[in-house]
Design a protein around this nucleic acid. Structure first.
Length: 804
RNA sequence: GGGCGAGUGGCGGAACUGGUAGACGCGCUAGCCUUAGGAGCUAGUGGCCUUGCCGUGAGGGUUCGAGUCCCUCCUCGCCCACCA
């Protein structure tokens, strides 16, 4: 028999919260602030799926808890509403992106409200609104002013049959998603942000309470390495190469030099020589293969001799210059010196018969002999004994690094240098549904920033969504006319839009300032409210959103617009909810919709079931099997409050158990261990159903359940005569004296094996404990088998005997 | 190939700094209640050759004592993978 009607109750309270404006936040409150943020969703046409609920429900529970702890909690929600899916949808259906996006947003707000979250919708943002992207453009211009935004030629994925640029996701495996033709690389003039200026600052993690793994991922992504830049002259030519080497210990073994196939100096190297034709053909061939994504970097290693040499750099002879397919033009200097002590170099030399030299040997003589005969590549770094240069003979590879670097500098071979893997952020998208890049070109093609007074530089709407594959923006008369009208005849607008990551890199600044018309944010307000105290979102953003947002925040800080360097103080990644072990996705057709379950069991039950699945950061595989357990729990909870016997059998025990519960729930929420907190509630109910429960405890447990099941809590609170609203009541504290049991059962071990159990006072002495343990019949039998050589008592834990 | 993380009943998962492994829930079994039950209640539920023995992926080690610490291996997951 169901006595608690979740559907009715939840609707009732959602209406009341709305009509009483319960969750509106006064940003000027004197209470201590807490900015509780969760990554905002993309408003897709699909409904919210289980993953959203998993994430938003738990994050809201945390926010509700913090609010009851007395903080002024700011928990906003918005929409990352620019992006490709809406545009593709428009191409398919001719519904303009704005229309479908608005519709999706309206629907999602309904769904999000149904969760019972405390979002203050007054403070919402939507990145595709002109009032928002005006400021995204403003930020771009600020960066441009300071040289942090610039234009250069860069390759894009291009489909020759669709005649369009493709995003990486649309070009997976080098195949066009739409027509299944080969994708090629094509060079286009595009805009970049100079994130590389912040490589060093982005490595700094001071004050960040972030998962170690995420910090590590960012560090690897930035990829700082220190080494030597050798400076070397090409023989017979007035060309100098800079050659980067991050492992210079074996530099003296270098016997040849390789350069990237797309190195700009190649044609100069071979011009007029007998090598010119074959080299240039080789270069073209490799480029073509790479462009067509036909080049397998794992297995294909190709090279060609240029006929040129690097002039006797270390006094050991000239180094032949080769072109090698594996060298990257964009890392380091695009030129590498090779030696026998690098596996790839070694393989290359073997393939093309290039002479090698040894500078390091293994300590084992037999092995050393093999290495001397070039039987294999010896790179077993730490054990390696250096042979050459003589100054270092006998020293270990592992410890000689610093000295060798100094030696190289002293000799004048090269200079210390630092390199990063991080590249500048390409923000140009040859797409319609994004914020237009606020740049115009004069008749000579020179770029000019659009003055602030013309912002927002609005996205044109006189466009036709035909599946031509080209961005519809190119065909907007209004856009081009507008440009000429303002700037003059022959002027053209930039037709590319910005990467949506640009829009999502600063939204957290806009939330508390969302209605401001004259500026993106107010320094006083953001300095008060940021950094974000708790940021919850997916781990997949480690090297994208989370890095971009930090970069932009730092840049704004350096410009003096804001007073904090880092945007997110504490970061937590929710786990992924899978279905049959696979990520939920539309294409796989394994997306689970929450709606049916919410209809049947109610939003509280659904939220709690997801939290009960396991630790929040672990995620798990979706199964609808256990949800009845939580439904029963809610039913029993309601019964306990509404008709639970107030004839208490053991008052003392009740007091203890409620205090224990407060402690457990409090600590578990702090650590986001919602699953064990819920288990504790269940234990308490099991206890109370036998023991009875008094009014005070009813009130306390109602407060405790509020973050987990806000609707149920309001209903219970009202039932027991509480004043609206329980969600602003003060979080209960516990009496530390009452959470400890006076008597505990502990085990008795003999030689490490459990042989008995005794009940003992928590502050019993060792003597008492041992005496009690010896009195145990079973323990006695085992003690009789020999001499007791050691006695152990760990207070409140265990008694142990060692018998010989 | 490199980095990180994880392997506990039929299932999801508990177990704080090493100290009674399996909390809580699902499922299952029996009973009660009921015209009936895919509702509710009560009891039970790691395995076995059951005075006891064995059990946290496998094998070794440290310890009075190991799911927890150390070494080797296996399996799975995620991220990065031509970075000189």
């Amino acid at each position: 028999m169901i006595s608690y009607d979740a559907g009715k109750v939840e609707e009732k309270w959602q209406k009341k919260w709305d009509s009483t404006k319960l969750n509106r936040v006064n940003l000027n409150s004197k209470k201590p602030k807490f900015y509780n943020l969760v990554m905002f969703p993309y408003p897709s046409g699909d409904k919210l799926h289980v993953g959203h609920w998993y994430n938003y429900g738990a994050a809201d529970s945390y926010g509700r808890y913090i609010r009851m702890k007395g903080y002024n909690v700011f928990e906003p929600m918005g929409f990352d509403s620019f992006g490709l899916p809406a545009e593709n949808y428009a191409i398919k259906t001719k519904v303009p992106p704005k229309e479908s996006t608005d519709k999706n947003v309206a629907y999602m707000i309904k769904q999000l409200t149904r969760i019972g979250t405390i979002y203050d919708w007054d403070k919402s943002v939507m990145t595709s609104l002109p009032e928002y992207y005006k400021w995204t453009q403003w930020i771009f211009l600020e960066l441009y002013k300071r040289g942090l935004a610039y234009k250069k030629n860069a390759p894009v994925n291009w489909c020759n049959s669709c005649k369009t640029v493709l995003a990486n996701e649309q070009a997976e495996g080098g195949i066009c998603e739409r027509c299944k033709n080969q994708v090629v690389q094509k060079n286009l003039e595009q805009w970049f942000l100079k994130i590389t200026d912040y490589s060093e600052k982005l490595l700094d993690r001071t004050g960040l309470d972030w998962p170690e793994k995420t910090i590590l991922m960012q560090r690897n992504w930035i990829g700082r390495s220190e080494g030597i830049n050798f400076r070397e002259k090409v023989k017979d030519l007035d060309i100098w190469f800079e050659v980067y080497d991050s492992v210079p210990q074996t530099f003296i073994a270098q016997t040849f030099t390789v350069i990237a196939p797309d190195h700009p100096l190649i044609s100069k190297l071979v011009k007029g020589t007998k090598y010119e034709k074959s080299v240039m053909e080789f270069v073209e061939d490799i480029k073509k293969k790479k462009m067509a994504n036909k080049f397998n970097i794992e297995t294909d290693m190709e090279g060609i001799f240029t006929g040129r040499y690097v002039e006797n750099p270390f006094g050991k002879g000239d180094l032949p210059i080769w072109i090698a397919s594996f060298v990257l033009a964009e890392y380091g200097t695009g030129v590498v010196n090779c030696s026998a002590h690098d596996e790839r170099d070694f393989a290359f030399a073997k393939k093309y018969g290039i002479p090698l030299r040894i500078a390091m040997l293994p300590p084992d003589e037999k092995e050393a002999e093999k290495v001397k005969n070039f039987e294999y590549c010896y790179h077993h770094a730490n054990n390696g004994v250096l042979q050459d240069p003589v100054e270092f003979k006998g020293r270990k590879w592992g410890e000689a690094r610093e000295d060798i670097i100094n030696y190289i500098e002293k000799k004048g071979f090269g200079k210390k240098s630092t390199n990063y893997k991080l590249r500048d952020w390409l923000i140009s998208r040859q797409r319609y549904w994004g914020a237009p890049i606020p740049i115009v070109y004069d008749p000579n093609g020179n770029p000019h920033p659009i003055p602030e007074k013309y912002l927002p530089w609005e996205l044109p709407t006189d466009v036709d969504f035909k599946p031509t594959g080209e961005s519809p923006i190119v065909h907007s008369n209004e856009f081009f006319k507008r440009t000429e009208k303002i700037f003059g005849k022959g002027w053209r607008p930039e037709v590319d839009t910005m990467d949506t990551f640009m829009c999502s890199s600063w939204y957290f600044l806009r939330y508390p300032c969302n209605k401001m018309g004259k500026k993106p944010f107010d320094r006083k307000i953001v300095d008060k409210w940021l950094p974000v105290d708790m940021y919850i979102g997916g781990a997949e953003h480690a090297c994208m959103h989370l890095l971009y947002a930090r970069f932009l925040n730092m840049a704004l800080y350096d410009m003096g617009h804001i007073g904090f360097k880092e945007p997110f103080k504490r970061l937590v990644h929710q786990g992924t909810v899978t279905k049959d072990g696979a990520k939920m996705s539309k294409t796989k057709g394994n997306v689970v919709s929450p709606d049916g379950f919410v209809d049947k069991y109610g939003s509280d039950v659904f939220r709690m079931y997801l939290m009960f699945m396991g630790p929040f950061t672990e995620g798990g595989d979706w199964s609808d099997k256990g949800i009845t357990g939580i439904a029963r729990f809610v039913e029993r909870f309601w019964k306990m409050i509404s008709e639970g016997s107030e004839k208490v059998i053991d008052r003392g025990l009740l007091g203890k158990n409620i205090n224990k519960l407060i402690k457990k729930v409090t600590e578990d929420i702090e650590e986001l261990h919602f699953n064990t907190a819920l288990a504790a509630f269940m234990e308490f109910i099991n206890f109370a159903s036998k023991n009875g429960i008094d009014k005070t405890c009813k009130k306390i447990i109602t407060q405790l359940i509020t973050p987990f099941a806000p609707h149920l809590a309001e209903e219970c609170h009202e039932k027991i005569g509480g004043k609206y609203s329980v969600s602003f009541s003060k979080w209960p504290g516990y009496d530390p004296k009452l959470v400890q049991d006076d008597l505990t059962k502990i085990g008795v071990q003999v030689n490490g094996k459990l042989r008995g159990e005794i009940e003992i006072s928590k502050d019993a002495s060792q003597e008492e404990a041992l005496k009690l343990a010896r009195a145990n019949e079973n323990v006695m039998r085992y003690l009789a088998q020999g001499q007791v050589v050691k006695e152990i008592y760990v207070s409140g834990r265990i008694v142990g005997f060692v018998v010989k």
